[in-house]
Write a protein that binds this DNA or RNA. Structure first.
Lengths: 340, 340
DNA sequence: CCGATTGATGTTATCGATAACATAGCTTGA
DNA sequence: TCAAGCTATGTTATCGATAACATCAATCGG
């Protein structure tokens, strides 16, 4: 039993395949009566259009490629979800590649995804190899880096400066009288967003002359709650006098908080803890975590809107196109793990 | 500047396009020397094969469609991630659709995804409309339902019985002397997995004669930690004498735990709490949550393996193919929120 | 009342790769 | 020594839709 194709529908209705094609896209100029008959026959025969053939012919894949380290991170997952919903309105689908924070993998995924002829690339802005950057730049399609605001963007950006986030947290703590700060993050040499927050931390500690830079890299990203728990005793051993720990993420901060409570270290009386991401847990735990809130849904929506604008209009030559930057707020949100 | 195609490469090397095609797939029989020259020219010209054309010709899309409520749920995200990694080995990519727990959306997504001619469908086994079931059955490709073990499966299954999970928790609590149990879950009439755990709960409470059935449906899925916090006082007001709450998920259970601690309700002395999913939080909080551990990575891997088996072999007629069931363990894991 | 315009539909060529078959040169073994 | 088989490559047809152009009838305005 051969698969039904457009021509089968056309024959049964008594029109040409082209008319069926037009009836199935909403833009086609087909008489109401004809369209009705066509849709009915489509239903009867259970016809499913072959978008692969359609894409080849129209030279539009209907895909947007998304590169993310993983979607095990709820805020990231939410951005992608929101992006998918936004793009759905114009019939674009998402093709996800998981980089696992490895630039080598990102390269490989990129070459694979590009074979699908995506109409745009959205990439969570962790480190990119020169080759990846070249691939993206030469792909001839819009690129959007999200969740950071890189100094030398490839094309469009929807995000905030992770480095500034790191610095701002230090200033925030300094203003509240904390003096001996430490950073708990991930081992990584490939330029993740966490690494840039760490950089901001280090720079600001140095700028404010807050003494030695204390950075503890516990494990490769993402740091789990339990890894963070394990880190606290080691950090206290290395630097017994620290009065604040800046964590790479909320789960990490929650791990530190749990361990501190287990060890009888008072939070925030003896130790301040700051997280990042405004994960659900940060509002719900006790005391609630001081953190940095990012509107992850908005990142997805803005990215979707930006792409719809760029892909919708008449084909503007890439060379003439203007890259856009959408600033997303990163709001330092004092809660219970820092004193006022 | 036209995009480079296979024939451009072929011309430059001085062979036919077919030889280039063969050189680019590892299976082709091409002399080592020719292949080397071809790969070099491919690199020089920056040729990127067009998989859309390839798929149309070979009638193999290289896609597996995945339908999930959302990936904001880390265990689900992990299953999908593991599935993607498993399928990557054979060059299959994943096409995700987010149903948001709405069967109507699932239907729509299904019709859209089927136009991409996926080679298989993986679906998180929440409720499916009759139309969805028909679409899947008639698609002529393997279907895998995951994260549950439905009574009337569509085709293959990789999962565990959510209903049994609900029942087992009740028995577990009853054995430990708990008598007045309540269930905290989601408002839903479309047959989610959570609803089936609730069903198992209800059946077992009735079977064991544990008195009135206490079910509190707080909000549409997924229940957030804060919604769960808000639920506890209401539940205690409705049923002041309950001694255990079975929660639809770990985040939900964590919310209840937090609120109980805030209200001064002793856990597990006055109130037992059971979660589901073995989320990271359940190990890290204090006391750690009694929960049901699911090996979500394994679900992804097993699904990948199953699909590789089915898609790899010579084309077996769908009618002759045997549906498979892979059982995944759901391990009730006693921790600190229930007494022994 | 007729040329111009509009609306609905048909025809043909094409998108870029690959399946299937064809071929030419080379080896091999009885 | 030659038929049979093998290796490496070429040729042709095809996958299923859609863009672009063509056509034909109905409508309309002066």
């Amino acid at each position: 039993m051969r698969r039904i194709k457009m021509e089968d529908v056309a024959r049964k209705v008594g029109v040409s395949a082209m008319t069926v094609s037009r009836a199935l896209k909403h833009d086609g100029v087909v008489s109401a009566a004809t369209r009705r008959r066509i849709l009915q026959v489509v239903e009867e025969l259970g016809y499913v259009p072959d978008q692969i053939a359609g894409s080849l012919s129209s030279q539009r894949s209907g895909f947007v490629a998304v590169l993310a380290p993983s979607l095990n991170n709820p805020p990231l997952a939410e951005s992608v979800h929101a992006l998918a919903e936004s793009l759905e309105e114009v019939g674009l689908q998402i093709l996800i590649g998981y980089t696992n924070y490895e630039t080598k993998r990102e390269e490989r995924l990129l070459t694979e995804l590009l074979q699908r002829r995506p109409e745009a690339i959205v990439v969570v802005s962790d480190g990119h190899s020169p080759r990846s950057r070249r691939l993206m730049r030469e792909a001839g399609i819009p690129v959007v880096q999200i969740w950071d605001r890189p100094a030398r963007p490839i094309d469009n950006v929807v995000g905030f400066s992770n480095e500034d986030v790191g610095s701002n947290i230090v200033r925030f703590l300094a203003e509240r009288g904390y003096r001996r700060l430490a950073y708990l993050g991930e081992t990584n040499d490939e330029g993740t967003r966490g690494a840039r927050r760490r950089l901001g931390f280090v720079r600001e500690v140095e700028r404010l002359n807050l003494g030695p830079v204390r950075v503890h890299d516990q494990a490769p990203p993402p740091i789990t709650m339990l890894q963070a728990r394990a880190a606290l005793p080691r950090m206290l051993q290395r630097w017994p006098d620290i009065d604040a720990i800046v964590c790479v993420s909320d789960p990490c901060a929650f791990g530190v908080l749990s361990e501190a409570q287990a060890m009888g270290v008072g939070v925030p009386s003896q130790l301040a803890i700051v997280g990042f991401g405004d994960f659900e847990i940060s509002r719900c735990c006790s005391p609630p975590l001081t953190t940095v809130a990012i509107d992850s849904g908005r990142i997805g929506h803005e990215t979707g809107q930006l792409l719809k604008d760029m892909l919708g209009r008449s084909p503007v030559a890439m060379s003439k196109r203007v890259s856009r930057r959408v600033a997303i707020d990163a709001i330092l949100t004092p809660r219970g793990t820092t004193r006022s």
